[in-house]
Amino acid sequence: MALRKCIYWNKVCPTCRVLLVSLNGPQITIHGKVKNARSGLQSYSTQANENNPSCETGYTVSKEDFKWVKRLLPPSKIPDPPKHAEYPTPSGWSPPLDPPPDLPYFVRRNKYHEFSVTVETKVGGGAFTHITKIEGDIWALNKDLARFLEPELKYDLATTVHEVNQRITVKGKFQDQVVKFLLLQGF
């Protein structure tokens, strides 16, 4: 049985260089690379545990060194942004004003400390800019936003205010302008 198996391995993977040391015993010892060989051929592992300290692959328990493992554990939460010397940072990010600006509305940051302003593109070439996480008087925000954006445009701004879901949709791609406006307002 052992012989047949070996012949089989020799035939299937000739690049493996399987060297057979003993053909008589039930165990097959194999030297060299065995990565192309399938299961049933590894005979190195002896189960390591505390009761068997003579095992070559045993281990020692070190409670002091666990601090290095602790350091490698990843955080599960998005960390708070560090304090920078000056704002805006080179990436253009700046924190919200604390205390918040005295306005009837407020726009929150999302969990990544950014504004939830997204652009939805349509197949025909149309695009919509969605602003979410709005709190307070959404109609006042809509008015101020239009007042900020309209001087650069040659047409009236088309916006939709969804008050129940606290969302404003602007027709067109205005992500950068809207974020600029919100930063200027101090959110």
């Binding site: 709190e135 307070g136 008087d137 959404i138 109609w139 008050e163 129940v164």
Partner: peptide, 10 residues
């Protein structure tokens, strides 16, 4: 316009 809703919290 749902004026009642807009300042539900504040």
């Amino acid at each position: 316009r749902l004026k009642v809703l807009h300042s539900f919290v504040r």
